[in-house]
Amino acid sequence: MTTATRSGDAFKGTTRGTTGGTTHDAGALTVANVSHVYGKKRALDHVSFTLARGRFSVLLGLNGAGKTTLFSLITRLQAFQAGTISLDGHDLQRDPGEVLRRLGIVFQARTLDLDLTVEQNLAYHAALHGLPARLARARAGAVLERVDLAERHGDKARDLSGGQMRRVEIARALLHQPRVLILDEPTVGLDIKARAEVLAHVRTLVAEEGIAVLWATHLFDEIDADDDLVILHQGRVRGTGRADTIMEQMGAATLTEAFTRMTTSETV
């Protein structure tokens, strides 16, 4: 059974939570009762959670937990099978355009055009969101400034390091000023320093801009005690709530320990 609690609220353990599909105002992004199967394999099983505004939320799960499937559903790259996803009251299936224009996305795979410059990559994205050139240029300057890459605007994407590319992708995702930013394992393949930088930039965004972030990862050391967690295991939500609350609930000293208990005790 799934649990769904409002992020930021006290963690309700493993009690059956409300799925709250219609309470759009509860948070920035609402995922309600989403299930997905590939053939006979159940990738997502009644997944429900709400992303709070101005919070750094972590979608925590091991590889194969269903994170990428969930991302491709939210980004409309995969056909919907069951459930609802809504953003600011706009239903993804009824109104995909309105959801996508409020959503910033950073994919796990690199999606910059390597032959184009940083600026050109941003301009292309701005055009895909219908932003006029002048506005796009002004915003490109601002978002690059945000990720400390203003001076690299004329460089080819190919010449950037892995961490810098990721930061450009984050800057690009902010160009259309989304309400929600989702990132699918954004630190994969980065060294420790670059990882820390990317993470710090996104945390600053949350703090300063009040944007809601969903950060998918399987790396426990990227999580802070006051982050909201959605723990996904084998396609099911095993718990939601603040990291420290979850640890307390599980009587665990570390998050890893809490995670292990939650995912093993509930399996099967």
Binding site: D88, L116, A127, L128, H129, G130, L131, Q177, P178
Partner: peptide
Amino acid sequence: RKAAPASPGFSLFQYAICLNGILWR
């Protein structure tokens, strides 16, 4: 960030911007 899109949908001008961006790229 709070400046969310005011009106739903896109204007013809925005469609033109998008098409132009794709041709240019």
